[in-house]
Design a protein around this nucleic acid. Sequence first.
DNA 1: TCTGCGTTTTGTGTATACGCTAGTGGTGTC
DNA 2: GACACCACTAGCGTATACACAAAACGCAGA
Lengths: 213, 213
Amino acid sequence: MRASDRAYATLLDEIQGGEMAPGTVVGEVEQATRLGVSRTPMREAIGRLVADGLIRQQSPRVLVVSGFEVEDIRSLFEARRALEEAMARIAAARADSGVFGALAHDFEVAKPELGSQAAEAYYAVIARFDGALDRAVDNVYLVQALRTVRTNLARARRLARDNRERLIASAREHALIARAIAAGDPELAAHATHVHLHHALTSILDSIKEGQS
Amino acid sequence: MRASDRAYATLLDEIQGGEMAPGTVVGEVEQATRLGVSRTPMREAIGRLVADGLIRQQSPRVLVVSGFEVEDIRSLFEARRALEEAMARIAAARADSGVFGALAHDFEVAKPELGSQAAEAYYAVIARFDGALDRAVDNVYLVQALRTVRTNLARARRLARDNRERLIASAREHALIARAIAAGDPELAAHATHVHLHHALTSILDSIKEGQS
DNA sequence: TCTGCGTTTTGTGTATACGCTAGTGGTGTC
DNA sequence: GACACCACTAGCGTATACACAAAACGCAGA
């Protein structure tokens, strides 16, 4: 693995995990020394993080970890809705119904509310679903845009803790989306995605509001 | 201006303009020598072009200008549809109706069919419209994704020559979209965008088919 | 004491050198 | 004659040195 990849992965983790808080100044030399790489690969890593939107230029010479406010979460979900609705619609028109039928079944039998191990298994199913969607749609532009959105989404997840009811509902929503894709029903797939994202966003915003009060 | 920016701009131009044909091997040393910069800024420029999707890795050590086939154009328009429909919808819900009313008027009085100067003026109106849309939507994730799509779209434009009828129709379609946004009608804005992109894609594909025959 | 100018320091942009890896061509052996 | 192995070369990843620019601090003068 290349030094620039390691530096990117490490910084990404630290920003997503909140260890590097928004506003933290990211100096080339400082980070390069800390992570034991030289400035050149560190520059590349920082460049990728800037492109991802996780680091931004505060002034001509200082880069800082970008903030992540409630308004950013709304923007993120707007973009997510545009991309994921389109993906669901296209997948429903094209996809192999076997794969999504199996995924729908997995969502239907998932019991993510039964402890952290079950939740992990549920997240793994979601990851498989996302991967299947990417392959079914087979559109580099959409997938690439969604990758950036997902990278930023990881930061939102940290702000909100999933509760029991939300996990159960989320599994049901995913099951419906997968069923709609398997059935070749683009409108249902898109609208079920819309509903799912609406609930996910509402849940995150409620969770943040609770956390503040 | 930084050397890496110059190198990026130059290579971008050459790829979009077709001077560097798909499949052309892009060597760091070769390009750095040719453009009179050193390898470090050239690496950065190439990295950005790879992120944009204009250059891709053919094998572990060779980068080539990526191909741009009919299938890529379809993918591009799928992504464009997802993003621009969402943008139009959001802008209609939010935008200052004065700005888009004025743009609608500009589209209505545009006569892009009257020679290349009039066409240039028309393209300038489109650029202003795109800019106004970006500002109205005010969503970095959507705008960034659309920027990448537009970068690739420039390659498609070279493959298709706009004809008289298409230009006239395009102006009318844009006028309708702008009017819908100004009127605060999200569904009409989105569907007019859909119609516009459908016609634009059809026109490009027809134009390519003609060019081949 | 405040303001302005100069100097120093810090940090980025660029250039270049070094080392490693992969690819290719040639030679030797079976 | 064909296949395999070794060596050479080309090109990339990384490190580092140098240059330049901006910001901050200090000193001096008003």
